[in-house]
Nucleic acid binder design. Structure first.
Lengths: 196, 196
DNA sequence: GTCTATAACTCGATAGAC
DNA sequence: GTCTATCGAGTTATAGAC
C-alpha cells in the first residue's frame, strides 16, 4: 500500500470511529489518539469537525466506487448482485455490532439535520445505480431502479434487525432468501414491478 | 386526557426529542425547555440521563402494547397485519425526517454500547411476537416467526431508505407491495420459509 | 415535605494562541 | 506541539415556594 498522507490517515481513522461510535459521539481526542498526533495538529489539516465528516464521506464514496468496480470483474450480472448481497455475510460481525455504515450515517445525519446528509445519501445512490445497471443487464430494463431500491432496502432492513437482536442466523437466512429471490427472477424479460 | 405527572411529562417530551434528535444529541436543557421546568429540577424525578432513557423505553413499550391491542379489535389477522404495515404511511412525514423511532434508537444505542439496548430491542420483540401470532392465526404456524421477522425487516429497510432519500413514492410503493405480498400468501397452510 | 429554581461544580468538548 | 480559553454538557448543592 502507498504511504498515506496525514489527512488521509485522519480520514481513515475517523471513518472507522464514525462508524463504530457515531459521528456525534466521536471526539477530536478520539481521532487524534487513533492517528497518533496531537489535537492542535488537527487544525493544520481540517478546520472543523464538519470538515472531517466531509473528508470521510468523500473517502467512502471512493472506496464504494472501488468496491463496485472490483465486482465488475465478474462477467455475470447475477453474480455481481450476489457479491453485493454477500457483504452482509462478509461484514457480519461489524454489522451486528454497529449496523450498516451507510444506513447508520444517513440516519444520524438526518436527525442532526446536518447539511452533509445529502452527500451521505450519494453513497446509497452509488449502490442503487450500480445495482440498477446490473438488473438492466439481466433484462429488467423497465424496473431496474425499482428492483435496485428493493434489494437495497431489504439489505438495510436485515442490517437493522441483525444488529438490534444480534441475530446472525436471521442475517444468513435473509442472505440465502435474497439469493433465491434473485435466482427466481425472470431473465431477459421486461417485467412489471413485483411485490418480491 | 388525564392530568400528567411531571415525570410522565418529562418522559413524553424526552421521547419525542430522543426520536427527532437522537439520545446523545438531546441535552437536559432541551428537555427542560420542552417541559417548561428548570434543569436542576430533573434530579428530583430522575437520578441520571440514563434513568430518563429507561423511562422513555418503558413508555414506548407501553404505547406499543396499547397500539397492538388497538389493532386486535379487527377480527381479521390479515387486516391486523395491514394496520402494522400502514403505520409507514400514517407516520410518513416523521419517518422521512427521522426514520423509525424503534430502529434508530436501537442503532444509536448499539453504537454507544449502551446497556439499555437490550430493553430497546424488546420493543422490536413486541412487534415480532405480535406479528407472529397474526401469521399463525392465518395458518402459518411453522414459519410465523420467520414471516414476522421478514416483514419487520422489510419495513425497517423502507424507513431507512425513505429517510435517506426523502422518497415518499418509494415508501408508498413498498407499502403497496407488502400488501400484495400479504394477499398472495397461501392461507390456512403450513408452508416452508419463502424468499418473499 | 414535596416540588421547584438558581447557581455552582466538574468534566470534556471545540477552538485558538503561542 | 503545548498550553490555555471558552463553551456546554451532566450533575450536585442549597435554598425558596406551595
Amino acid at each position: 500500500m502507498a504511504k498515506q498522507t496525514t489527512p488521509e490517515l485522519i480520514a481513515e481513522k475517523a471513518d472507522t470511529l464514525f462508524y463504530e461510535r457515531g459521528f456525534e459521539a466521536t471526539s477530536f481526542a478520539d481521532i487524534a489518539k487513533a492517528v497518533g498526533i496531537s489535537r492542535g495538529n488537527f487544525y493544520h489539516h481540517f478546520k472543523s469537525k464538519d470538515d472531517i465528516l466531509d473528508a470521510v464521506i468523500t473517502r467512502r464514496l471512493a472506496t464504494t466506487r472501488a468496491m463496485l468496480a472490483g465486482w465488475e470483474e465478474d462477467a455475470d450480472p447475477a453474480q455481481r448482485i450476489i457479491s453485493f448481497v454477500r457483504i452482509l455475510i462478509v461484514n457480519r460481525s461489524k454489522i451486528m455490532a454497529y449496523g450498516c455504515p451507510v444506513g447508520t450515517l444517513n440516519t444520524e445525519l438526518s436527525k442532526l439535520d446536518h447539511s452533509a446528509q445529502n452527500r451521505a445519501s450519494d453513497i446509497f445512490a452509488l449502490f442503487r445505480d450500480w445495482l440498477a445497471s446490473q438488473f438492466a443487464a439481466l433484462g429488467h430494463r423497465q424496473d431496474a431502479q425499482d428492483l435496485a431500491m428493493q434489494l437495497l432496502a431489504r439489505s438495510q432492513g436485515v442490517a437493522v434487525m441483525a444488529s438490534a437482536f444480534g441475530d446472525e442466523g436471521f442475517l444468513r437466512a435473509e442472505v440465502a432468501a435474497m439469493e433465491s429471490w434473485l435466482a427466481a427472477l425472470p431473465k431477459n424479460l421486461t417485467t412489471k414491478r413485483q411485490g418480491h
